[in-house]
């Protein structure tokens, strides 16, 4: 650190840290509290639905008018979880490509920030596709946001997360467009770093949701 030399101009800061990076971490901190409130609501309502469908167990008459299967599809959600985890890998590789653009050893795909940014955006869009499939199949099986407490808290929680993923995909596509238009280099690393922090946060929120909503019965 003592020999580090930076030559880019910055607004002076009292901490010596970039305002934008402090802002994104503060934003992520506030988002932690938002998702904690949504997860709390889901957990408090867990197991208190009077009518089906239920997440992990089937519902038979007389409790339900007809037989209803357990609604959560773990194999499908496991695949979407894997896709989102891989998108985080693609994102760090995009950041590394931007930071090291033009350096030896960063030629081909490894140094192609365009490739990794687009790969991340595609993985995010694929996750959203899985979520759209899941929501559609739930509605066809009789679970909507108004059906029971599980439906209300489930769609609110996962819907908010899906909205965050959508914002992340749009952010990534914007960075991709900038990269195509003028190219992203080491001087733009902070821009990509900030978007990467947001993207990884969306990933860690899903790690919590996957366990608390899908796997814990």
């Amino acid at each position: 650190m003592a020999t580090a030399v930076a030559t880019h101009a910055h607004p002076p800061t009292s901490t010596g840290l970039d305002h934008r990076k402090i802002a994104i971490w503060a934003f992520i901190g506030s988002e932690c509290m938002l998702f904690a409130s949504l997860i709390s609501t889901y957990l408090i309502y867990k197991g208190r639905s009077i009518v089906g469908p239920f997440p992990h167990e089937a519902c038979d008459p007389p409790r339900c008018a007809t037989h209803l299967n357990a609604i959560l599809n773990i194999p499908v959600t496991s695949q979407s979880t894997f896709v989102l985890l891989m998108s985080s890998l693609f994102m760090v590789l995009a950041l590394e490509a931007v930071e090291n653009k033009g350096k030896p050893g960063y030629s081909g795909i490894r140094g192609s920030s365009k490739f990794w940014l687009m790969a991340t955006a595609i993985a995010g869009a694929t996750f959203l596709g899985y979520q759209a499939f899941e929501f559609t199949s739930f509605v066809h099986e009789g679970l909507t946001i108004r059906t029971n407490l599980f439906g209300s808290s489930f769609f609110t929680l996962t819907g908010f997360h899906g909205a965050h993923v959508t914002a992340g995909v749009l952010w990534l596509l914007t960075l991709f467009a900038i990269d195509v238009r003028r190219g992203l280099g080491p001087k733009d690393a902070l821009l990509v770093d900030i978007s990467a922090l947001y993207w990884h946060f969306v990933d860690v929120v899903w790690i919590a949701i996957f366990t608390l909503v899908y796997l814990i019965k």
Partner: peptide, 21 residues
């Protein structure tokens, strides 16, 4: 309103230029 830091007094680690990843 801008400055150029060329010494160790400023922590450039988090400024976006120098990273240990």
């Amino acid at each position: 309103d801008t400055f150029t830091h060329t010494n160790a007094d400023v922590d450039v680690h988090a400024m976006g230029e120098v990273h240990e990843h």
